[in-house]
Design a protein around this nucleic acid. Structure first.
Lengths: 121, 121
DNA sequence: CTTTGGCATAGATGTTCGTCGATCGATCGG
DNA sequence: CCGATCGATCGACGAACATCTATGCCAAAG
């Protein structure tokens, strides 16, 4: 590997010098896992549907119709959203009510803003 | 698939009344596609690596080493990040330099904050 | 013009993911 | 208890994805 003419300065074989430490692999894996939970059209719609309900909670029977998917599929997505810390599950009677975790999505957005540009050691 | 209260078909009450219109399927698909671009550990590290370089740009030879992947794989991920509007590609001589699109990641974070709870308009 | 080096593309492969139908535990009404 | 309903789990299937090796393209060097 040869350095490009105007920009190379380092003693290593790097083309451009490095100013900060990049994101560690472990942190990248963790953030990516959280982002994967919302990087899916159905799950975004489910979050929006829950938020659109009074009290910001809804049972599964409220959601299967609007997203036009089978009940097992909806339960599967809801489980992923709960595991990601974006929804909570509360069983009342025969129904399972899902509610938004306040600030969870905003927190994820904030981490996204700061993780790439701002993590110097 | 029956609801405890009388089954409704429209946006009126089912289990819980609806207060807002949920996210449209088209918007959910578009947002999910953008999120998928960053919901991957290697791509997050690549974004961070580019941000860590002087001038916030780097060529492929700068990135293959740190992420410990083959050069075609790195090119593949960079292409996805360019398609998502997060990186720009500029060829100078034999080298292809990738740079962050200013504000792209922040804009995505803002959309994420407002899309679920905010009004769809 | 030939060679060399950086990078993109193509094809192949193993894994992950989204979806469904079938089933099962749990709960409520008679 | 009995039958019905809500919702979670299981097993399967097809699509999408991340990765590799091999190859092609283009610019610079000799």
């Amino acid at each position: 590997m040869v350095s490009p003419p105007p920009l190379a300065e380092s003693t290593t074989d790097v083309c451009t010098p490095v100013r900060r430490d990049p994101m560690p692999a472990a942190q990248a894996a963790l953030l990516a896992a959280r982002l994967k939970a919302i990087a899916e059209p159905t799950r975004l719609r489910l979050l929006s549907l829950v938020a659109a309900h009074d009290g910001q909670e809804a049972c599964v029977c409220d959601l299967t119709g609007p997203v036009d998917l089978s009940q097992p599929t909806v339960s599967h997505h809801l489980k992923i959203l709960v595991a990601a810390g974006l929804l909570t599950r509360t069983k009342r009677g025969s129904w399972a009510f899902y509610a938004l975790v306040p600030g969870a999505l905003e927190g994820l957005a904030d981490v996204l803003r700061s993780s790439v540009a701002g993590s110097p050691s």
